[in-house]
Lab assay of single mutants.
Amino acid sequence: MAAGGDHGSPDSYRSPLASRYASPEMCFVFSDRYKFRTWRQLWLWLAEAEQTLGLPITDEQIQEMKSNLENIDFKMAAEEEKRLRHDVMAHVHTFGHCCPKAAGIIHLGATSCYVGDNTDLIILRNALDLLLPKLARVISRLADFAKERASLPTLGFTHFQPAQLTTVGKRCCLWIQDLCMDLQNLKRVRDDLRFRGVKGTTGTQASFLQLFEGDDHKVEQLDKMVTEKAGFKRAFIITGQTYTRKVDIEVLSVLASLGASVHKICTDIRLLANLKEMEEPFEKQQIGSSAMPYKRNPMRSERCCSLARHLMTLVMDPLQTASVQWFERTLDDSANRRICLAEAFLTADTILNTLQNISEGLVVYPKVIERRIRQELPFMATENIIMAMVKAGGSRQDCHEKIRVLSQQAASVVKQEGGDNDLIERIQVDAYFSPIHSQLDHLLDPSSFTGRASQQVQRFLEEEVYPLLKPYESVMKVKAELCL
């Protein structure tokens, strides 16, 4: 049975990233139509530049190519590739079939990587351009969430054990800070992308030097003109047959890092959902379990974690691919890159769409948070109580021993009897502590235990987050809708 299948058929496997999760716009960027249309555009740009620099290419040939950029006979191309065992030459023939007058000058002087690699770089750039505003929107939604809850005390956790208090907004800023680093890295790697350009079979530009009869300047002009037509500021000066596969490492490393950030955020949300302090959106008709109707599973956060793990592992592909590119190139890269580049971007696209949807509907339960604080705060307040007693004339050592005994009794009630923490009640009825009984409410005010959390939130948002989001103001209103 021949390899390949009808990918629109229910009898043929289709990647869930495309069929179930990723956005239509990201799927289109990695589609065959987008790819092969870009090949034709690159052939047109090459012909236009070659004509401008004096090669015998007519206006009629150029116009014929322009008129057929979208006229792609995919069936013919597939048949040609089956016959020739070469995808680029299959599309040269297919393009030439609908451009008979231009057929002889299509791909003039070029090698397969002229269309293959340059198209990949265009796709990487455009895919990054799709991700950047999506990530900015996630940051914006979380920034709104953090600002609104900047002063809401909550129990902090280290080692997932109760620690000092923080605020809900401050905790959210930990998430935002990681995503801001990801946004900066995505922008950097996007701006650092260079075009492969017009380089020939081993990167020496020998074929173009021959076409222009040894004119170095025209060869350099050709490279520059096509690079500018493709919208790049610069091209690699040095290439082998391909652009260095280190570029793929750079791009997928940034995406993998984004995956790590999203995994951490969504894990926190899942843990908070278990504590009943916070939940992701839950639709009115949504079913959490087929057997347990009360369940409210954090399905979206779980999906993000599941896909983020996949995204983090994909960076190993370009690392290994770059390491086995012998001399000017081997074909070890080809099949692998067809999979890992598309999957990385479709996965990143999915987790950003999902995280935006989550961040637009996060639900906080202040009463649950308050109750958990009441359970733990008495123990945390013991040092403040000791200091207040010393100020009232008591002995630190005597007070410490009193607190120690009462704390152990209260802990026994919590752990052995399943009761509430009654340390404060014990202190309130103990005559030894009568000098500070009137101060206990103040000493137990949760806001006095959150330090500068709310001020940190305000400063972080104003100095770091809002300036970073400013270039994306025009796209901030787009909502994230999930079908599944």
Rank of each mutant, 00 (worst) to 15 (best):
L124F: 15
K66A: 03
K224V: 05
I139L: 08
K479G: 11
N118G: 01
K229C: 04
E425V: 08
R426G: 12
P24F: 12
L482H: 11
R141M: 13
E401S: 15
Q285I: 13
Y294K: 05
T382K: 06
R296C: 07
T227Y: 02
Y34E: 05
R40L: 10
L461P: 00
L311H: 02
E48G: 10
R137F: 07
Q177V: 06
R171F: 10
R190W: 05
Y365A: 14
M316N: 02
L155V: 04
I57G: 02
Q51G: 06
G54V: 03
V478T: 00
F28Y: 06
T204H: 01
M225G: 03
V364G: 13
W175M: 02
A308R: 05
G203T: 03
K477S: 12
H86E: 08
T244P: 01
S9V: 12
Q325V: 00
D445L: 05
R404G: 10
R337I: 14
L46N: 12
K134V: 12
A344P: 02
G203E: 02
E279G: 05
V92I: 05
E64C: 13
W39C: 14
I57K: 00
R452H: 14
N421G: 14
C27K: 01
C180T: 06
V219D: 00
K187F: 01
K284W: 13
R149S: 03
E220P: 04
E213N: 07
E464N: 11
L121F: 05
Y294C: 11
P153A: 04
M292L: 10
S151T: 08
I339R: 04
K229Q: 00
D11E: 13
G419Q: 00
L211H: 09
C173M: 05
L406N: 07
K246A: 14
G419D: 09
L444G: 09
G104M: 08
L155N: 00
A206Y: 13
S112W: 03
L55T: 04
K246T: 06
S23Q: 12
T321G: 04
E70C: 15
F433S: 11
L132N: 11
T52C: 12
L307W: 05
T94N: 01
E376L: 08
Q63L: 05
E280K: 05
T313H: 13
G5C: 06
L124K: 10
S323I: 00
L468Y: 00
N353Y: 02
Q286W: 11
T154A: 04
